[in-house]
């Protein structure tokens, strides 16, 4: 597939006795925002962890830009991706600028380019005027924006976003959406997981639905509705139809 950036082919991963991901097959096109939806315990985080290089013991195959891809054992491959984790993975006692500089260095940004990368990150997060304040003094929304900027510091081809808008106010959420759309305009590819249906519907070009470790459907929101046999229904109804209404308390 000429435009595919990431291709996942029949990926399986087992957490002890539990099959967390079953035969997951998914293609992420270059330059798109792909939503990844699923109830708790569906296998979204495990799948993202395999892609990010945090888990290695999976079966199946992955290709990045058409070439085989084993990020757990290949730092260069990992450098082609960025991760925006659900946790606020920042150092609260450092300033925004210090956080960006440090993670930029960890991502392999050259010293000569570091200042420019930090400036770009501050602009992306809308934190230019608070660059030298400690993160501990930031609101939840500001921290979320910084969290996103850190993930994008090295301008990765693929950005993995794991519920990046948890606990933020509408203003910050809007800023994050604008930032993500701006990244896509710059040619970046994004995989976006969230439990907020309206976010996914607003942002994502296509949506993959995971349930019980499997990818059960992929397409636009309208295509998913047709696939679920409830054409014209909103995404939440489609999601519930595909994944059921029973509670999912499994971690």
């Amino acid at each position: 597939m000429a435009d595919s950036l990431l291709a996942i082919d029949r990926l399986c991963y087992r957490h002890g006795d539990r099959q967390a991901v079953r035969e997951a097959t998914l293609v992420c096109q270059r330059g798109e925002i792909l939503g990844l939806l699923g109830p708790n315990g569906a296998g979204k985080t495990t799948l993202l962890s395999c892609v990010a290089g945090l888990l290695a013991g999976f079966t199946g195959a992955m290709a990045f830009g058409g070439t085989p891809f084993r990020p757990a054992h290949d730092a260069t491959a990992r450098a082609r991706m960025g991760l925006v984790p659900q946790d606020l993975a920042v150092y609260e006692e450092l300033t925004a600028r210090e956080n960006l500089r440090f993670f930029g260095a960890m991502q392999g940004v050259a010293r000569s380019s570091l200042d420019a990368a930090v400036a770009r990150g501050l602009a992306l997060a809308g934190l230019d005027d608070r660059a030298d304040d400690r993160v501990a003094s930031f609101s939840g929304g500001m921290k979320r924006r910084l969290n996103l900027a850190i993930g994008d510091l090295h301008e990765p081809e693929l950005l993995l976003l794991d519920e990046p808008t948890v606990g933020v106010d509408p203003q910050s959420r809007n800023h994050l959406f604008d930032s993500l759309l701006a990244l896509r305009q710059r040619g970046r590819t994004l995989i976006y997981t969230s439990h907020y249906m309206e976010e996914v519907q607003r942002l994502c070009d296509r949506i993959a639905v995971m349930n019980d470790g499997q990818i059960v459907a992929v397409g636009t929101a309208a295509e998913l509705a047709v696939h679920a046999g409830i054409a014209g229904a909103d995404l939440e109804q489609v999601f519930l139809k595909m994944t059921g209404r029973s509670l999912r308390d499994q971690a």
Binding site: A75, A79, P85, A89, Y91, E92, G108, I150, H154
Partner: peptide, 13 residues
């Protein structure tokens, strides 16, 4: 605090 996860997916050896 989640920073280790971020460091592990970075390019850092």
């Amino acid at each position: 605090q989640g920073t280790l996860r971020r460091l592990l997916v970075s390019r850092a050896p």
